[in-house]
Design a protein around this nucleic acid. Structure first.
Length: 333
DNA sequence: CATCCGTGGCG
DNA sequence: TCGCCAAGGAT
């Protein structure tokens, strides 16, 4: 019966696969491992719609892993600005340089897993999609589909072991890459979190949750904590058509990204001393585990270690969204 | 195992 | 309007 699930799903995929820029077109040879890897990293916790324009610009600017490996890190960080989870961009550069030095991507799941930024999911996905390996690819889509297919009521994250074992059982020996992408397409378009479209699902007849009557209930998740609201200040220092920008250090919040000087609200210990100046306005922004209310103050003297950035090229600075909002506010005054 | 780490869209 | 959610990884 396990074979039946993958066969139904692959048939459905052959007819309904989404046409995505990182996928090989029908008739083309296997997809370029560089493009598979790049897309998989960009897609970590990020929607297809958000990734598309970044994937296009990255592959145009850096067509190969060697090209990316040769790029200055700050150029890559700036190009990543707005996509979020900036440790991905830091690891992207590290990984590209490692792979370039190796002469290419390793072609096994175990070797891929050793590269920076590739965890269990991405190593399995690249091994299966780019190299045709049989690998068990488990992301949030697969977790949802499998939890419903087998009516696994145990809440996440405790259910992960059970889900992985069920996913292993239905993963076919060949076309594991297509199978993985089919599961993700199914999860993204049919077996969605809020409103599963069971009437169009190729697996509906095998689905235990549907038989039980309430597939949308699964998978069960632990309740989330409410996000606290932090307050902070950022400083707008403008002189001769330029603004003073710093580059945030380290691996923490927005690490490696250009930014306005701030008072250390993100608790990284490298904020500048509190200054007062005209209050230009407030910016509110939500992060994963807290919200920030940022007061934007105009100040006359440059603060901290930074550089003057021409205002007419500010969009090229690569400011993360919080500071892009702050800049928009300041420039509108 | 829990926490940290962005962002934008959707119901 | 707002909580939830997305092709997770590192520590």
């Amino acid at each position: 019966m396990a074979a039946t699930v993958s066969e139904h799903l692959l048939d459905w995929y052959d007819a309904h696969a989404r046409d995505l820029p990182w996928r090989a077109r029908p008739g083309q040879p296997a997809p370029d491992p560089y493009r598979v890897w790049l897309s998989e990293v960009m897609l970590q916790q990020t929607t297809v719609a958000a990734v598309k324009p970044y994937f296009e610009s990255f592959t145009q600017r850096w067509p190969s892993v060697d090209a990316l490996a040769s790029a200055p890190e700050e150029d890559v960080m700036a190009a990543w600005a707005g996509l979020g989870y900036y440790s991905r961009a830091r690891n992207l550069v590290k990984c590209a340089r490692t792979v370039s030095a190796l002469g290419g991507f390793p072609d096994t799941e175990a070797e891929l897993r050793k590269l920076p930024g590739l965890g269990d999911y991405t190593a399995a996905a690249v091994a299966a999609i780019a190299f045709g390996r049989r690998a068990v690819v488990v992301d949030a889509n697969v977790e949802r589909v499998v939890a419903r297919l087998f009516a696994i009521g145990e809440p996440l994250p405790g259910a992960r072991k059970t889900i992985r074992s069920r996913a292993e059982e239905i993963t076919p020996g060949t076309r594991a890459g297509d199978f993985a992408q089919a599961m993700m397409d199914l999860g993204a378009t049919i077996c969605t979190a809020r409103d599963p479209k069971c009437l169009r699902c190729p697996l509906s007849s095998a689905c235990e949750a549907r038989r039980n009557g309430d597939p949308a209930r699964l998978p069960v998740k632990a309740p989330k904590k409410t996000r606290p609201v932090r307050q902070g200040r950022a400083y707008w220092v403008e002189r001769d058509g330029a603004v003073w920008l710093v580059r945030r250090e380290g691996e923490g919040m927005l690490g490696g990204m250009r930014a306005l000087p701030d008072d250390g609200w993100s608790a990284r210990g490298d904020g500048v001393a509190e200054h007062s100046g005209e209050l230009l306005g407030m910016v509110r922004h939500g992060f994963t585990h807290f919200e920030i209310e940022l007061a934007i103050h105009a100040v006359d003297i440059p603060l901290g270690d930074g550089e003057w950035w021409p205002l007419d090229r500010l969009d090229e600075a690569g400011l993360p969204t919080l500071f892009a909002k702050a800049a928009r506010l300041a420039l509108a005054k």
